[in-house]
Nucleic acid binder design. Structure first.
Lengths: 228, 228
DNA sequence: TAAAATGTACAACGAGGATTGTATACTCCC
DNA sequence: GGGAGTATACAATCCTCGTTGTACATTTTA
């Protein structure tokens, strides 16, 4: 494990900030701004280093806030993590909902429009660059996160997006553009196939067990695609 | 984060072992056995709790070994982690290679045989139950693991399997069973589609950037599958 | 402008945990 | 049966980090 440059004194990564007194970069405004800054800093820290490695000190420093202020806004590190997850998931979900709406509201050329959709889907979104890394941390930490928090994240993020995509696909099927038996599976398959380049490996999800059905559906799609 | 029951004194999970003196469950045999036991225990601990949370003490306890013995076999926690990764990756890769060989060596009914292959692919392998969790930990820790170790893992595990699958698909194409332009992509798509039920969410992989091509390929497969 | 909120620096506490040294106990081979 | 190699228990070291208390500064608000 390459040792991470100690934070809190001189920031890592970009090195923009070094030995700056907290006062200088203090976000103007009241309660809400501090809170937002902490969430943003926490997102970066948790995403890059994971829950345990991300120290409160480093989060405070990234956020331009004292550690005490963090404890004034969030009861402890664990709850901060959960709120960061929720914060980031909601924001990114919004972006995907916008993409779905933009490319699937009106379809004129099926293949062209889906290609555009696919490209938009995997186009990196620099504003939310850390979110994917955060998701990896969530998946790794899943066993140590309360079930309620996991569920809340799923509902606010991935499930919400998938449902919207499924609805869009169902609509296209009703308009005669597609043949879709199970819009939910179709939406899932779409996201998997489209971001195949992003996935180097496989990961798990013990939340659903319609495994058999999904295997069959996957095989069918695969064979339709490759068996001509 | 649900606090984890402290290990090393009374084991968690199954609770099979509590306050057992190391002597009692000491694996018989010499050097190699100790080493194997440590790798096995490390695998469980790292998979369940992640790199930082898995303590050397807990690994020692699970392995039925003293912490000192761990340090006699592995120079430090970091290297132990890397060796555990390699160990598990190789073992699981073997299992998948066997599956590929078993179901794709001789094909008589395309759909039936691929369905069997797909079911075998996602059939949980209890012997290697922890491996998926370990992979999640690797992905989360990736930024803190030396590039060489990541690459070694990829080569020994996922890439090796994917290449074998690609070779099998290419052979089936040559025999006229399939139409496959790019066996590598086809293999990747197969694994993604087949384990769609296992993946609740998306994950990343900054190792390849033929993103555009893969998007197009994914879309094509998707449309072939769902646009009839 | 002054009280109330809120934020900051600083220091302290306490727990957990990686790593190492050491003296003692086992095991295996000759 | 005894020595070499290995393992064990135990304890000590040293460091990181979450969390809290406190006195002082800043900002907001009325």
């Amino acid at each position: 494990m390459a040792s991470v440059a100690k934070e809190g004194q001189s920031d890592d990564a970009s090195g923009e900030v070094r030995f700056v007194r907290q006062y200088d970069k203090r976000p103007q405004g009241g309660l809400a701004e501090k809170r937002a800054a902490i969430l943003e800093g926490g997102l970066k820290a948790f995403a890059q280093h994971g829950y345990t490695r991300a120290t409160i000190d480093s989060i405070a420093f990234r956020s331009g806030v004292s550690t005490r202020t963090i404890y004034n806004h969030f009861c402890d590190k664990e709850h901060l993590f959960q709120e960061v997850i929720q914060f980031s998931a909601e924001r990114v979900a919004q972006a995907y909902l916008a993409i779905i709406d933009r490319y699937l509201r009106k379809v004129t050329d099926l293949e062209d429009d889906f290609l555009d959709l696919g490209r938009a889907w995997v186009e990196p979104m620099p504003e939310y660059a850390d979110h994917d890394a955060l998701v990896r941390q969530i998946l790794a930490e899943a066993a140590h996160i309360p079930v309620a928090a996991i569920r809340a994240w799923q509902e606010a993020g991935p499930l919400r997006v998938r449902r919207a995509l499924a609805a869009a696909l169902r609509r296209l099927a009703e308009l005669g553009w597609l043949h879709v038996d199970d819009p939910e599976s179709a939406a899932l398959h779409f996201t998997l196939l489209v971001s195949a380049g992003q996935h180097p490996h496989r990961q798990i999800a013990p939340l659903e067990n319609r495994t058999i059905d999904l295997v069959a559906a996957g095989i069918r799609a695969f064979l339709y695609g490759y068996a001509r």
